[in-house]
Design a protein around this nucleic acid. Sequence first.
DNA 1: TTCCTATAAACTGTATACAATATTTTTTAT
DNA 2: ATAAAAAATATTGTATACAGTTTATAGGAA
Lengths: 221, 221
Amino acid sequence: MSNDEHIYQQILKAIVEHQLPPGARLPEDRLSEAFGVSRTGVRKVLQRLALEHFVIIEKNKGAHVNRPSEAEASEVLDSRILIEPQLIPALLNHWDLTQSKRFRSMAKEEKQAEAANQLAKSIQLTARFHYELANVSGNQVLARFIEQLCYRSSLILAAYGTRGSVGCECGDHTQLLDLLDEKKSDQAQDWMRHHLQHIKSSLILDSTTDDNIDFQQLFTH
Amino acid sequence: MSNDEHIYQQILKAIVEHQLPPGARLPEDRLSEAFGVSRTGVRKVLQRLALEHFVIIEKNKGAHVNRPSEAEASEVLDSRILIEPQLIPALLNHWDLTQSKRFRSMAKEEKQAEAANQLAKSIQLTARFHYELANVSGNQVLARFIEQLCYRSSLILAAYGTRGSVGCECGDHTQLLDLLDEKKSDQAQDWMRHHLQHIKSSLILDSTTDDNIDFQQLFTH
DNA sequence: TTCCTATAAACTGTATACAATATTTTTTAT
DNA sequence: ATAAAAAATATTGTATACAGTTTATAGGAA
């Protein structure tokens, strides 16, 4: 793996696993020192992360971890709800025992991570289950897009997730695998739709943001 | 518009409108001279274009305009076929006379550009019709993705399009607008699906690439 | 104290320098 | 004349320098 890619993966992982919370500043000096490269290298990575909506870069103010708006959160989930179920027919064309076993082992790992309260690992595996599944459909272009949306969803959970959100998201992926094994395309699609809808409704999207609190309403009763 | 954004738009335009054909090299010196900035600025833009699949950057070899593989071409069109029709229900929620007029004037401009054989303008307007339509659906995340896919489609046309492809792609967008005005959601979705399918099948995806010609088969008859 | 202002420190934006790699041209031997 | 080898040129990758901007700190007046 190239050096840039390594730095990219490290920072993305830290953001997605909520080590770097939304709003956290990312000074180029500190990062270049941490990774042992010049600012040139980290700037490149930060610009990529900005294009992918994981960080925001403001002119002369540098980069900070994105705090997704409610609209963004909603749209990312809606996009997944629209696309992921649609991938299932193509996915079933490539579905076989090997795939089934692979995903079952992933689902098992997920449950273990969740049981052991390993938040970071749990988040990582949940996202991975979805985008690896998208990948089986065979359309790389869509799979890459879904991968991005899964990572963005992890970031959204950091901002709007309830305590049990990640566990919720797990739901139980083995249910889906059962339907896939039985080639029940329509039911699998419905399951996926409801699964994602469930995640979306577990978010707290009630337009009370930190920096825009209506004190008048809050203290007048 | 920031300076970077200006350079980005200029180069993207040149690629999408087939001024810079697939395979064309993009030396940083030449570009920085042309735009009157240092290499730093153009590198940033080239890296963005690479992430978006408009150019390919090879280590120590620099950037050249991407020549999409057949698989990529096929997947980009398939992605549009999957998503764009699905956007129509949401789109109809925001559809009114103002929108209708706006798009009819765009469709008219398209026809004129095509009639006048203005290839570049024609390509630009055809892509724009689609991604502006996606934008009306209200989901910015999906709309931005569709915008990318539309531009990539233009690049794909440069590589695999037949002479009449661009004209073909125009089909007649006013037909769709008629269906939208009548709120015929299902028919509009079908129209969109067939429209995109038509564009896809107009491409020449027959695995005979320039650098892999089977001379044996070609001259043995 | 609290607020405003001035100064200092930290940080980003852009250009440039230099080393490493690739490409082209020239030279040399067969 | 052709092909291989060597030198010269061009191009990219990375670090660094410096100017411009923002943010933090300190000092002084109400």
